[in-house]
Structures are given as C-alpha cells and as structure tokens.
C-alpha cells in the first residue's frame, strides 16, 4: 500500500516537474505534450464519473470537449472579427461560464433521452448525439465549417497569462488535480454510493426507493460539464477549434484512456491518458500509419488484458 501510494505521488510530481525542466533546457515540445496530456486526462476523469462509477457507457464525450472549445472560439472569433456583440468577448470567466452552461445543457437535454435507454441503445444514442454536434459545427460556415476556427487570442483571466506555455501547463495541471479531487469527493459521498449501487443493480435501487433516472442524469450532467471545462482548456491550448475535435474516434480514444487506466479509480484516467499520449507520440513518430499498431494494441487489450493498469497496481 505504502509503495503504491508513493508511486502514485511520484507520478503526479514527475508530471508537474519534468515538463517544466524539459522546457527550461529548451525542449518545449514536452511541455506542450504534458499540457495536452493533462487536458485529455481531465476529460477522461469526467468520463470516468459516469462510465466507471455509474456504468453508463457514453461514446459521445468528445462532444463536450468540442462544445467547451467552441465556447472559447466563438466569442473570441466575434471579439476579433465583429458580429454578435452580445457574445463577443475574450474574458476567460465568460468563456468558462458559457462552456459550463452549454455543456451542462447539452448533457441535460441529450441525457433526458439517452438515460431512458440502456446498454447498446445508450452507447449508440450518445454516439449519435455527439455526431449531431459534429454536423452542427460542420454546417455553420461562419465558424469555418470543416476547416475549423483559428483564434489568435486566448481567454483573458486576471493574473494568468495563458499565452505563456508554462502558465498554460500549470493551469491545466492544477485543474486536473482539482477535478480528480472533486470526482473522488463525489464518488465517496452518499450520491456516489447511490451511483455505484445503480451501476451494480439498477432494478434493486428502484425498489429501494431511489429515483434512479434523476441520479443518473445528474451524474451525466456533471460529467459533461467536466469535459466541457477540459474543452475550454483545449481550445485555449490549440487556438484552433474544429469539428474534428468532436469526431467519434475522439470519443473512442477517451473511452480507451478510461478503460486502459482502470475504471472507477482515481488515478485510472490519468494513467490511461499518459499511456495514450505516449503511445500516440511514439507510434506516430515511427510511422504515419500509427493507427495500425494502436488498433492492434486496443484489440489485444480487450481480448487479453482486462481491468486496466490500476488493477495491476492494486494486486
């Protein structure tokens, strides 16, 4: 136990320190990589809340990343190029508020329908709704359709300069820690206990007098909002926002992270994101056809290696 705890601590410390050291010795590439890693890990933490703890297999969580990113991109676009004055701003707090409201609302409205269904229906419907968001942004020419939206500005937040890569990284890292802590808190609460009860035996929870639908809906909205926030960071990080962020293979990658890392664990999503980002980097530096080994690996993980990395650690 002691060893595992210090191992986890070591991972977090290295994730914080190493990228900054690399950056100082001129290898800024690793800092960017770590920033991206943290952002993806936040989204995976959000997905883990419903997939791992609640047993809701959403194949559409990239939609929230996209919504969050467009919540930065669209106001910034109007702030830069005019139009829609009520929306035009580069104020980071407004960006975050819009992202939370929109991703929460999207989760609420789609959740109302998705959560009436179970199993495969749920998987496919979440997928379909995220595709709806994808086609919605593809259809809006003003925001660049397929080509996406380039914004030459980042969200303005007092005392923080997101244009500085180190600050961008630190914001992402501390957000990750915050959301890991928050999700941990939620899953240990009464609500979290009920959620795991629902994952285990939904029918029984209904007969115990719980409004299962409402609990699932709330978890679903929470999860969407966390991913929406990750989207705000992603939009700021890339300053290029395109429907491709919502593509369903992005959702698949998020699921891969959560499952590879180990569902329903605090560190799982982070482990998963680390492995995913490293794999992607290493494989794509070897071959542009990196999806081939990645796909084979995914199949191998599913066929032979269940329970994820966290289960290896807890053995």
């Amino acid at each position: 136990m002691q060893f595992i705890r210090s191992f986890k601590f070591l991972i977090l410390v290295s994730l914080l320190v190493l990228p900054i050291i690399f950056n100082q010795i001129g290898m800024s590439f690793y800092l960017d990589l770590a920033t991206r890693l943290c952002i993806l890990a936040i989204a995976a933490v959000g997905l883990n809340l419903i997939l791992g703890y609640g047993g809701m297999i959403s194949f559409g969580h990239a939609a929230y990343l996209g919504l969050g990113a467009y919540a930065v991109g669209i106001p910034a676009h109007h702030w830069l190029y005019g139009g829609l004055d009520f929306l035009a701003t580069n104020n980071g707090f407004i960006h975050i508020t819009i992202a939370i409201v929109i991703s929460g609302l999207f989760a609420f409205l789609t959740g109302l329908i998705c959560l009436k269904t179970k199993g495969v229906y749920f998987i496919m419907i979440t997928m379909a709704f995220s595709q709806m968001a994808y086609y919605l942004f593809v259809s809006i020419e003003e925001y660049g359709s397929d080509d996406g939206l380039v914004i030459n500005t980042r969200s303005q937040i007092p005392l923080i300069n997101l244009d500085d890569p180190i600050q961008m990284f630190l914001v992402s890292f501390s957000s990750l820690i915050f959301f890991m802590w928050l999700v941990q808190l939620i899953t240990k609460s009464n609500f979290g206990l009920i959620l795991s009860g629902i994952k285990d035996n939904e029918a029984r929870m209904v007969s115990l007098g719980y409004n299962v639908y409402l609990h699932k809906l709330i978890a679903f909205v929470f999860s969407g909002i966390i991913c929406g926030f990750a989207g705000v960071l992603l939009g700021n990080f890339t300053t290029f926002i395109s429907p491709e962020m919502i593509d369903w293979s992005r959702s698949g990658e998020l699921m891969f992270m959560v499952i590879l890392g180990g569902v329903a664990t605090v560190m799982g999503p982070l482990f998963g994101a680390i492995v995913f980002v490293i794999l992607e980097e290493v494989l794509s530096s070897i071959t542009i056809y990196w999806h081939l080994p990645f796909g084979l690996l995914l199949i191998a993980v599913v066929l032979f290696f269940r329970g994820g990395l966290s289960s290896l650690l807890s053995k």
Binding site: I57, G119, V120, S249, G252, H291, L292, L297, L298, I299
Partner: peptide, 23 residues
C-alpha cells in the same frame, strides 16, 4: 463479454482496417 468490450474491440478493428485500406 459485455457490450463495452465489443465496442472497444471493434473500435480497434476500425483503426486497423482503415489503416490497412490507407496502406
């Protein structure tokens, strides 16, 4: 297995088949 494994396994298969087609 459960549906989650179907989804992940065949998602892997998509990546493989699409890349082979690309090759």
């Amino acid at each position: 297995r459960d549906h989650l494994d179907h989804v992940l396994g065949t998602f892997g298969a998509i990546l493989v088949i699409d890349t082979i087609a690309h090759l």
